[in-house]
Amino acid sequence: MPKTGIPGKKLIELYKSMLKIRKVELRIEELYSQDEMKTPVHLCIGQEATSAGVCACLKKEDYVFTNHRGHGHYLAKGGDLKAFISELYCKEAGCSRGRGGSMHLIDERVGLLGASAIVGGSIPIAVGAALGSVFQKKKSVSAVFFGDAAAEQGVLYESLNYAALKKLPVIFVCENNFYSVFSNLKSRQVKDNIYLRAKVFSMPAHRVDGTNVMDVYSTCAKAVKYARSGKGPVFMECRVYRWRKHVGPGSDIELGYRSEKELDSWLKKCPVNTFKERLLKTKLLNAKKIHSIDKELDSEISEAFEYAQKCALPDKKEALKYLFHEKDDYALD
């Protein structure tokens, strides 16, 4: 087995990060039918490696912007689990205080500055955060996750142009899962070549196996180094697959818009299991360690769900709150 060049500790961290996402998503799926999480959930089961691989390259001071399918990005960047689950349960203790729901997660304390449910919507905002970082001489990089359909939006190309023009520290991460709701990429784009379009803007652009967390991590680590040194943005197209429906729990394979054979081929490439097998072979993991990681994560997740279920709902009288940040007066600072 070839050496990865990634330290063993980091590999375990990547495994835990992916596994946490998988377990949280499965728990959401399991409990969703109780109808207590009254918010549409876009599960990222099958896409965990992109979240884990990219975010493992980032520091706390770096920014992440995400989209409607953002549970994994939130968790991998270190977003608070209890606040996330509470948000799904529509509680005031939710990360967005019950005003955002599943599609609008935020944890500003770890640099996760928001999620847009308009396809491509958070891309320019990430570019702006990078511009702010340059203004402030902070050396923070800004990473943004978006899907393949964002490559059909003009705002992506406007953003690529501007980030490249100003050499801003942005990591563009396209998670190409080949489907926009029920529509295959082939019916929407001339060619399956999203990453090549970024190259036109004179920035490094890579196509990565998004089910292989080591590929994602290695590519992104170089990208972050490049961006942080002031050389400009980098583009990554990570090829992944959405195992579940566009929105909601469960499979939709019976609808027939994609084949069972296609799904099976991706199930075989499960990012979590294939990586676990590898770690077992290289002796970085063993049955005992796997068991203890499982136990630790399961109990953390159970605790978060119990917490969320018990938390208070928002106060109806506060429905207007947070529309504006008020100043007591307009006196100058």
């Binding site: 500055l113 702006g128 702010g132 705002v155 953003s159 501007y162």
Partner: peptide, 26 residues
């Protein structure tokens, strides 16, 4: 010229750029 600058004609993205800069304290 770093604080007062011309922009490409990408009104939508540049508005997002302003939002992002504002979010991080500009």
């Amino acid at each position: 010229a770093k604080r007062v600058f011309d922009v490409p004609l990408s009104e939508n993205a540049l508005t997002g750029v302003a939002i992002g800069a504002a979010l991080v304290g500009m």
